[in-house]
């Protein structure tokens, strides 16, 4: 079960064939992973949140993270971001152990972590991607402002630059956070449920942006409840329920047997079963 993520073959036709460990190993040898976890475990007091998670994430590859509530998706993303120190095991960025958050990794938190009533404009939220590193004495340089407006333009939010963030719809807020992440010029994008509570046009716009980032060789990991999205919009998929149930090309991972092992048979809805094969 514990198969490492292998880069999928392109075009992403679902072959339905699980790559043999042998071919995966060969492929991995030719490209080194950007981000990897090694026997990662996280314990909160008496409860285990993640158990022996070993995964690899490659440049130019999008990985979807699927699992029930409480499966440890957010915990894993926080470990990858360097926010949460693992109890056992390690996270490596380009082979170097991650001990604290790196500017090369950007993290888009779940919507519920944010104070939406805070009086801050869309432009200033996007600028956070740059401003934290700027000089304390001077205002944010003009080129950073221009870059922020460009990034907002890329996510279709330029005309909202002066609007207070709480006045936007959920989808628009998500796009502003994506602009902030882009401005950070990171190599790794970690997104915690970027599609929950987001309208369909925004979903496709966000997916388009993520596809563009992937084209630039960025590593993208997103957590989702949407099995269709996990399959169609990612090169690799991880089924997580505290431990890795399965990982690899989505078509090979999202089988009925694997989904039942992840979600428990009773929790599976007919729609989810229709997705698996």
């Amino acid at each position: 079960m514990d198969v490492n993520i292998a880069p999928s073959t392109r075009p992403r036709a679902s072959t339905g064939v699980h790559p043999s460990p042998d071919s995966a190993a060969r492929f991995a040898a030719s490209r080194s992973p950007r981000l990897e976890t090694e026997h990662l475990s996280v314990h909160f007091e008496d409860r285990s949140a993640l158990d022996d998670v070993t995964l690899r994430f490659f440049p130019g590859e999008t990985t979807s993270l699927v699992g029930p509530n409480g499966a440890g998706k957010s915990t894993l993303l926080k470990c990858l971001a360097g926010i949460l120190p693992p109890t056992h095991g390690a996270v490596r960025l380009d082979g170097e152990p991650v001990r604290r958050p790196s500017p090369r990794v950007t993290y888009v938190p779940q919507r519920s972590d944010v104070d939406w009533r805070f009086p801050i404009s869309v432009l200033d939220v996007a600028l956070m991607g740059r401003a934290l590193g700027a000089s304390r004495l001077w205002p944010v340089p003009h080129r950073d402002r221009r870059a922020a407006l460009t990034a907002l333009g890329a996510v279709g939010m330029q005309s909202f630059a002066s609007v207070q963030i709480g006045a936007l719809s959920g989808g628009q807020q998500q796009r502003v956070f994506l602009a902030r992440a882009i401005l950070q010029e990171a190599d790794v994008f970690l997104l915690d449920e970027p599609f929950s509570g987001v309208d369909a046009p925004t979903q496709s716009l966000v997916l388009e942006i993520l596809a563009g980032l992937r084209q630039q060789g960025k590593t993208i990991v997103f957590a989702t409840h949407d099995l269709a999205m996990a399959q169609e919009s990612a090169d690799a998929c991880v089924l997580l329920n505290r431990r890795v149930v399965a990982s690899g090309p989505p078509a090979a991972v999202l089988t009925i047997a694997n989904l039942q092992a992840t979600f428990g048979g009773a929790a599976l809805t007919p729609g989810m079963l229709a997705m698996g094969r």
Binding site: G82, P101, V114, D115, M128
Partner: peptide, 8 residues
Amino acid sequence: FDRTYAQS
């Protein structure tokens, strides 16, 4: 505004 992002 956003404690988790600040942490990251």
